[in-house]
Amino acid sequence: MSGTIDTDGLHGAGGPFPPTRHSAIGRSRSLDAGERQRALGALIESYWKPAYKHVRLTWHADHEEAQDLVQGFFAHALARDVLQAFDPARARFRTWLRLCLDGFVSNERKAAGRQKRGGGLALLSLDFAAAEDELTRAGGAGVEPAAGTAPGDVFDREWTRSLFELALERLRRRCGEAGRDASLTLFLRHDLVEDGAAVPSYAELAVEAGQPVTQVTHQLGWARREFRVQVLAVLRDITGSDEEFRDEARQLLGIVPT
């Protein structure tokens, strides 16, 4: 037996993660205006809620102020091409964005220019009321972050939530396209039950669906695998580099970095 064991030749061996493709961050630097716009839209879609909740809870801003600050931040970022300054070698994108947001909020508060905030910049269509409602449902409105919470914890937690919510939307679309509505229903019934609600057993789901249990587990397995694919796809979009994507994937997939 040699000292080095080749694990690449094992059956089932594939690349550890999907092949690299350009993320939304990369595409946001595209020369094509349409491509750039779509990429920026994808980034804002992923990051505005974590940003809003971060400003609400960490900066103790009220709903109105947080709304103005987040609007102002993204409008400012788009207008000034702030994203061009991101260097993947120096930080992960979400950390960098949060620090940019913190800097923006700090400056804005010093200038105390709520009226000026976003002045002359196009307002983005963001559903702040829904975000506020989520904070209320989560019991987070007007409360202090838990003791021992690091400055970026709220942002990171909400970033994960946003990522999963976007992946869920993509899963819905994918199931619709693939004619796998039954799989989606099972996934929603079994894996997305509300807090406190009883999780139905496979046998109960089988009775509900009028299918054998094996069929239920098979369909549920498909939905879970597809959800995983969508999580990775969203993650690919909103991370700044291949290395960052891998690191985030490792954490999200429950693999403990050593």
Binding site: G14, R161, F164, L168, E194, R228, L252
Partner: peptide, 25 residues
């Protein structure tokens, strides 16, 4: 977009932590 409460989020994270055995027997 569907809001995911903390407990659901944790459950989904646990799901993702499970090995993806697709492509195996």
């Amino acid at each position: 977009m569907t809001f995911l409460p903390d407990r659901t989020l944790h459950h989904l994270r646990d799901l993702l932590a499970e090995p993806d055995l697709s492509g195996t027997r």
